[in-house]
Amino acid sequence: MSEQVPVLQARGLVKRYGKVTAIDGADFDLLPGEILAVVGDNGAGKSSLIKALSGAVVPDDGEIMVDGEPVRFSGPLDARRHGIETVYQDLALAPAQDIATNVFLGRERRRSGPLGSVFRLLDAKGMRAEAARILGELDIKIKSMTQAVETLSGGQRQGIAVARAAAFGSRVVIMDEPTAALGVAESAKVLDLIQRIRDRGLPVVLISHNMPHVFEIADRVHVHRLGRRVGVVSPRERTMNEVVGLITGALTLSDDGELVEVYR
Rank of each mutant, 00 (worst) to 15 (best):
F215S: 10
D41E: 15
I50W: 04
L193S: 03
S2D: 14
R196I: 00
R220N: 07
A37M: 02
F73G: 09
A188F: 02
T179I: 08
R220Q: 12
K189V: 00
G155F: 04
D60A: 04
R196M: 03
V262Y: 11
V5Y: 12
L152F: 11
A131W: 05
A185H: 08
L93R: 11
E186H: 15
V205F: 09
A148C: 04
L121D: 05
L182C: 10
G55F: 08
G12N: 14
D123C: 00
E34L: 03
R196E: 02
R80G: 11
M240Q: 15
A96V: 04
G43A: 08
D29S: 06
M65T: 07
A26W: 02
D219F: 04
G40R: 09
G249H: 01
S153I: 03
P114S: 06
R11G: 15
L206V: 08
G155H: 10
P95F: 10
S74R: 06
R81P: 07
L226S: 15
L36D: 12
T179H: 13
T151P: 06
V184D: 11
R229T: 14
Q89V: 01
S48L: 00
L91R: 09
A129G: 10
G106E: 04
G249V: 01
V221P: 09
A185P: 03
G55H: 13
R11D: 15
A44C: 12
G245I: 05
P59Q: 08
A132L: 01
D24W: 01
I134H: 08
V233N: 15
V103G: 06
V118Q: 06
P178W: 05
R229C: 13
H224C: 10
Q89C: 02
G249S: 03
G106Y: 02
D61E: 13
L182A: 13
V233G: 12
A56N: 05
R133E: 14
G40A: 09
T151V: 05
T21A: 06
R110C: 00
E261M: 08
S144Y: 14
A167H: 13
P203N: 11
V103I: 13
L115F: 05
L49H: 09
A124T: 10
L122W: 00
M175T: 13
K143S: 14
I140P: 12
Y263L: 14
A218E: 11
R72L: 07
V243I: 13
D61Y: 04
V172A: 13
L253V: 00
G116R: 02
M145H: 14
A218D: 12
V214R: 15
G55L: 12
E69C: 00
G45A: 06
R171T: 02
L91N: 10
G55C: 12
K51W: 03
S74L: 00
L182D: 04
D256G: 10
G83C: 09
F168D: 10
M211D: 01
V184K: 15
E177F: 05
G25P: 12
G155M: 02
G25M: 10
L49I: 01
A94C: 10
L253P: 10
L93Y: 11
Q195D: 07
L77E: 12
A92D: 13
R120I: 00
R128F: 02
R264K: 07
Q4K: 07
A185F: 03
G227Y: 02
R196L: 07
K46D: 05
R128I: 01
K143Y: 11
V190G: 15
K19I: 05
V260P: 11
L191S: 04
L202W: 04
G25R: 03
N42V: 03
A165K: 10
E137M: 09
